[in-house]
Computed example of a mutant assay.
Amino acid sequence: PLRPGTIGSILLRGGSHLPTMRSLLLLLVLAGAAVAQSPVGPLLGGLMQTRVYAHGQRLKNMEQAVEKLENRVDNAITRGRDVYVNNLNNLADRVNDIEGTGCGDKEFQCGDDLHHCIDKVLVCDGFSDCDNGHDEDAGVCTNPVPAGASFHGEMHFSHCATLPDFEMRLFVTGTKTYDYLSSVTNVRATLVSSGKAGDDVTFNARGAYGYGSRTLVLSDPDNRTPQFAGLELSCGFAAHDSKHANCKLVETFTRQECAQLRLTRD
């Protein structure tokens, strides 16, 4: 039999063989006090602190790993969505190239199913003339040939002259947009043609970029460069691609196409 007042008698109240929660807590307190007063108390306390710290670090590392995984998933979803949207936009551009936009040469297609068309001079003028406001969208009104931009490509002649293919580089040296005609940005550029024999030809060109047509037109108005006298470089940008342009070199008066060039932004 247990003597009254002992730990055993406290734990086995009323003859019960299962310790209560209060009894367990009391037992842990007494055991902790005993360990703390024993010679190995500091050692056990240090081990417990070390284990607690180690578990804390593991938990922190797991949280960081989960956060990185969430970021990777979010980035993958975003990239996938952007690629999907770009593919759809490129497909729409190709369909328009084949079927046409339903608008005239001097008109801008508003992008709706009704083929709503407005005059190109109304594009990016600060007022929404399309019912859906597409003529004032940031993507439409962003200049793909800002000052400082440079492009490169290879010129392929098909008519007008029997010249070998050569590399063409285009450097935009300045732009200016006037308030009274904000649908057009005036452009100054330097063009450098490099043949295989190393006979580079450099000339300064002037022209304009039209937001409604997404077309850059450059020429040497003073005909100071014989190789390009009477010629005009016309480069069209796709609606959703400002890094590439399909260009053609045409005779200014006859409009005969002489060469093709695909420019890529550096």
Rank of each mutant, 00 (worst) to 15 (best):
T177P: 07
H115T: 13
N89A: 09
N223S: 02
D93H: 05
C235G: 11
Y211K: 08
A205N: 04
R206D: 01
Y180T: 12
F151T: 02
L122C: 08
N75D: 05
G126Y: 08
V66H: 04
F253I: 14
S38V: 03
G139D: 07
G236T: 00
Q227D: 08
D82Q: 10
T252V: 14
L44I: 14
L30N: 12
M155P: 14
G100H: 03
G133A: 08
T142H: 05
G80A: 01
S219A: 06
G195C: 02
C103Q: 00
T50C: 03
L191K: 07
F228T: 14
F171D: 00
S23D: 15
L181M: 03
A76R: 12
F127T: 15
N87E: 09
Q37I: 08
H115P: 02
A92D: 01
A31Q: 10
H240E: 03
A92N: 05
V123L: 01
A239V: 10
V29R: 02
E107A: 05
I118D: 00
L249Q: 06
L122H: 13
L69D: 14
L233W: 07
R169W: 07
I118H: 02
V35K: 01
K120V: 13
D135K: 07
V52C: 07
H152E: 15
H17I: 08
G14E: 10
D165R: 15
P146D: 09
R79M: 05
N132F: 01
L69Q: 15
C258W: 03
V52N: 11
A239K: 13
A238H: 09
K196G: 15
G230N: 04
L47H: 11
V184Y: 13
H159P: 01
R94F: 07
S234T: 08
D97F: 06
E99S: 11
L191P: 04
F237H: 13
I118C: 10
L12A: 07
D74S: 10
V123R: 05
A31G: 08
N246D: 15
G212C: 08
D135E: 06
A138E: 14
L233D: 08
R22Q: 09
I7T: 05
D241F: 10
D135L: 05
A259D: 04
Y211R: 04
H55Y: 10
F237N: 12
G15F: 07
V184I: 15
H55G: 12
S183Q: 05
Y178F: 13
G133V: 10
A147V: 06
C117T: 08
T185F: 03
L25Q: 11
V192T: 14
L263G: 09
R224W: 00
G56K: 03
A36S: 07
V95W: 08
V250H: 12
T50R: 12
G195S: 07
R206C: 00
E232T: 15
D135H: 11
T252N: 10
Q49S: 13
G207Y: 00
C247L: 00
L88W: 00
G8F: 04
